[in-house]
Every structure is written in C-alpha cells, then in structure tokens.
Write a protein that binds this DNA or RNA. Structure first.
Lengths: 117, 117
DNA sequence: TACTATTGCTACTCTTTACGTAGCAATTTC
DNA sequence: GAAATTGCTACGTAAAGAGTAGCAATAGTA
C-alpha cells in the first residue's frame, strides 16, 4: 500500500546499490515528478491549481508525487499551498536549462527524424 | 504494440499541448531513460553492457528506451554499440550537474527527513 | 567444418504504476 | 446556512515495468 520513496543509500527501482544519482533518477523518473517541480518554480500552488496546470493529472498520481517529493525534501506545504524548498529551488536551477534545450530539440527533431530512420 | 514516443508538438502522456518541455519530461520520465543517458556518457556500450551497468534492467524495457531515445535523436547505434549523438551529449551536459547535487542531497536527506516529518 | 560463446533481441507471465471518474469531509465564501 | 472550493480517497480499467526463458544471427575457436 505505502509506495516506496526512492532514497539514496537504499535500493530503489532498478538500482540495488542505491547510488545517489540512481535514487534521484528513480525519484524524478516517475510520471509528473519533473512536471510538478517545473510548475512550482513559479511560486506556491494549491493542489487543484497544480492539477490544472499539469493538464488533468489524476489526483491519485499527483498526491503520490507530492508525498514523495515532500519526503525527499524537494517541496513542502506552506500557507499558500505546495512550494519548493531551498533544496527544491536548487534542483530547479539545474532543471531550468532543459527548457531552452527542449525548444531547440523541438525545432530540430523533424529533420533528424528523417535523417536517422 | 508500438509504444508512443513522446515528441514535442503532439500530445504526450499527461500533456495535451505537447509543449516541448512536457514532451521532454515525458521522454525522460520513464524508467531508466535518464540512467541510460548517464551510462552512455562514458562512451559507446553494447546492449548487454548497458544491461549490466544498469543493474539488471529487463531487456524489454531497455529495448523500449533505446528505441525511444534513438527516435528522439538522443542516441544512435554505431559500430561499437549504442552511443549518444551530439544532441545527446548536449543533453548529458545539462544532466551532469545532477551528479553532484544528488550527493549533497544524499548527505542532507537524513537530517531534513527528521526535521520535516 | 562444427562447436561454443556472445550479442541483440522477442515472448511470456506477473506485479506495479498510472489513468479517469466519482465523491466526500473539511474549510472558506457569500 | 447554502454554495463553492480544496484536498484528498476509492474505485475499476489500462498501460508500463520486472523477471525469466529462449532464439536467431554473428564472431571466435578447434
């Protein structure tokens, strides 16, 4: 019933060693984990706001992700809703460049897709 | 049978708009996608080498991830196995800082876990 | 040439995760 | 005190992943 939250040092999905990077990848490699962090970078949001901005993510999954990310110290619940912690903002700082990258990727993909197939 | 590969511009898992960043998060938010990119940063690897270095990831899933990442232009198959493309190396460059971050996270987590719960 | 080993998968069953919808208890707003 | 809004939980169904077995194709060896 209680979902496993990936933590560095203990085995996680796919990783028996629990190497920090693998634990992190397990945490982030779940649906909407990255999206939630991305959305929260604009400031605190309520549960329903998050649900909307994540385009109809099911409350079940959203709640699971929130619990996991909370337990991982990435976000916390404050007065105005869920928000990134200092740690979480640090993590977002690393994530931020992916925005521009994804746009370039979107532009170049059609070309490459034709080349490579 | 044929798995959906997330592409910017078209709806992806959870995202109807297909915003590039959401498509990217969908692509990377699948089990072992980040891990595979991480492993390949050391150089080309064969299928079986990847399987080992990803600690017993099932061949089914590995093969799916490889197809998706290949179709997304992140990696390709060369003479000495699977390897990151230029695009893929660019992506890894963004991913690289997560290594150090995860180590700091691993050190601080126990403390925070006690504080926050 | 035939034998063996390795590689890159596919097939299968079982479990876990996610989706989609409904709804409810606890505030908050009027 | 009635109506909204918020933060969930509870379903049932569908999709994704784990774990194991094995096979066709190539490479290396006797």
């Amino acid at each position: 019933m209680s979902a496993r939250v990936p933590r560095p040092g203990s085995p996680v999905r796919g990783s028996k060693t629990g190497k920090p990077i693998m634990a992190l990848f397990d945490l982030l490699g779940r649906s909407w984990a990255l999206g939630v962090i991305w959305q929260l970078s604009d400031g605190p949001m309520t549960f329903r706001q998050l649900q909307e901005s994540c385009e109809s993510v099911s409350p079940t999954v959203l709640n699971k992700r929130l619990k996991e990310l909370k337990e991982s110290g990435v976000l916390a619940r404050g007065d105005s809703g869920y928000q990134l912690t200092g740690t979480g903002q640090e993590l977002f700082a690393l994530l931020h460049p992916f925005g521009d990258w994804s746009k370039r990727w979107a532009k170049n993909l059609p070309k490459e897709a034709l080349d490579d197939r």
